[in-house]
Write a protein that binds this DNA or RNA. Structure first.
Length: 421
RNA sequence: GGAGGCGUGGCAGAGAGGUCUAACGCGCUCGUCUUGAAAACGAGAGUCCUGCAAGGGACCGUGAGUUCGAAUCUCACCGCCUCCGCCA
């Protein structure tokens, strides 16, 4: 959510930002609506002021006839207030609806573009893996090692269902334990949040109303979160944070649930796109300062790059184009890992910053040194998702003899084992 | 799942239709006094909306309602506590 005052004072910037994100908005209409809102608000408040004044007169005045007269007068004023409040309510409802649709302004460094095809590579790391044998895809490799069971997964869960079995489970635990050490060493506080969450946190993070179809819903009206970013942002909702605590850095760990509505034809086989998975996520709250947000953004993205580098998996990093940005995102980097059999890079991580777009919706604030209240800034970046990471891991590290090399850094979490055979 | 009780400022806690501009206390900030501190004394202090300002409005868990007037009455929701049941 943007500040309405900012929108009114920077109409052209907001319009250009929406255009860059390929989002349709009618700023002119919103401004007119807001003027109307303020006008009626003023009228309602003036009337209320009168009622308050006369109310005191009614108490203090001793003349019973006058009292009755004043009460009668106020009765008509009350009718007037009621009518105006009704009108105000409908305007405010529409105003809120429109405000939720105004996208945050993308950074100047974000490239123009329609969708992920227009994202721009800004870095590559490692050599694309070469094989002196015919490599297999992750499905074949994992099946042959009984690391996964898709048939029974589909039988039990349905479309996109899977069981992880045997060594892949141990690999997941190794990755989680390693990631836990890696990120807590960088000052992150681990946190396991509730993943069944009320609507408010989805509104705050921006997954509702636009992305509601992609969420699973319970019969009690809560939703299953697709990322721990949702409850972790909700953690401080409505609170005033002590500035001394910034930057607040959390490493969330949770299952993630995604309906993948609207992507039924995509990645129908394998572990790339599944309905439920686990993810470690970096979530950061910091002071409301653009330079600090940018610095934190680079930092959390770099953390994940370093993590991938330590796993020795070739990757590249892209900067997402305007059309591939979420409503609240100012800028986003995706880290994509090399998947040999697909002969392309596949997304593993996404680092975004939001300025105060989310914290304004969550009402997360702090007092600066002058005593002024500010909305904090928020950022998040994937630390590591499982089992998607296994796709590129087993494909890149498969050996001619059919074994899979375990990355050096994971071995101590795998009982010293070097290969899965 | 059943029964009952309770949500008031940073904390604690009164207020039970109008004089609430929310008491008293603790804590906090500033000042006086002091070499410095403590104590004592004095003063001050929230958030949001609106307005150039003066000012006005809203906020007693949240939202509706009753009333000329609601922290106070009614309803719903959220949360906390106690007891019973169920489960681990």
């Amino acid at each position: 959510m943007l500040d309405i005052k900012f929108i009114k004072e920077n109409k052209e910037i907001v319009e250009a930002g929406a255009k860059k994100k390929h989002v349709e908005v009618d700023i002119e209409k919103l401004i007119k609506l807001d003027d109307e809102r303020l006008k009626i608000l003023k009228e309602v408040e003036d009337l209320r002021s009168e009622v308050n004044k006369v109310s005191n007169d009614i108490v203090r005045d001793q003349d019973p006839a006058l009292k009755i007269q004043l009460i009668e007068e106020m009765r008509t004023v009350k009718e007037e207030i009621k009518a105006k409040e009704e009108k105000l309510k409908t305007i405010v409802e529409e105003w809120q609806k429109m405000m939720l649709q105004i996208p945050n302004i993308p950074d100047i460094s974000v490239p123009e573009g329609k969708d992920d095809g227009d994202n721009v590579e800004i870095k590559t790391w490692g050599e694309k893996t070469k094989f002196n044998f015919e490599p297999k895809d992750h499905i074949e490799i994992m099946n042959s090692h009984k690391m996964v069971d898709f048939e029974r997964g589909i039988k039990v869960h349905g479309f996109r269902g899977y069981f992880l079995t045997g060594e892949s489970v141990k690999l997941c635990f190794a990755i989680w334990n390693y990631a836990m050490d890696f990120f807590t060493d960088k000052g992150f506080t681990p946190i396991i949040p509730p993943i069944i969450d009320r609507k408010e946190s989805f509104l705050g993070t921006g997954f509702i109303p636009q992305g509601e179809e992609d969420l699973y819903k319970t019969q009690d009206g809560e939703y299953l979160a697709g990322t721990s970013e949702v409850p972790i942002m909700g953690f401080y909702s409505g609170e005033i944070i002590d500035k001394k605590l910034f930057p607040l850095k959390y490493l969330g760990f949770s299952p993630c649930f995604r309906r993948e509505a609207g992507s039924h034809g995509k990645d129908t086989k394998g572990l790339i796109r599944v309905h439920e998975f686990y993810k470690m996520e970096q979530v950061v709250l910091c002071e409301a300062n653009h330079e600090i947000s940018v610095k934190m953004h680079e930092e959390i993205n770099r953390n994940t790059e370093e993590f991938i580098e330590s796993l020795e998996i070739p990757y590249h990093t892209v900067i997402n184009c305007g059309g591939d940005l979420g409503l609240g995102q100012v800028k986003k980097y995706d880290i994509e890992l090399w998947v040999p059999k697909e002969n392309k890079y596949r997304e593993i991580s996404s680092a975004s910053y939001f300025h105060d777009f989310q914290t304004r919706r969550f009402n997360i604030r702090y007092k600066d040194e002058t005593g002024k209240m500010n909305y904090a800034h928020s950022l998040n970046c994937t630390a590591i998702p499982t089992p998607r990471i296994l796709v590129s891991m087993v494909e890149n590290f498969q050996q001619a003899d059919g074994t899979i090399k375990i990355p050096e850094v994971l071995r101590k979490y795998m009982g010293g084992k070097e290969f899965i055979s």
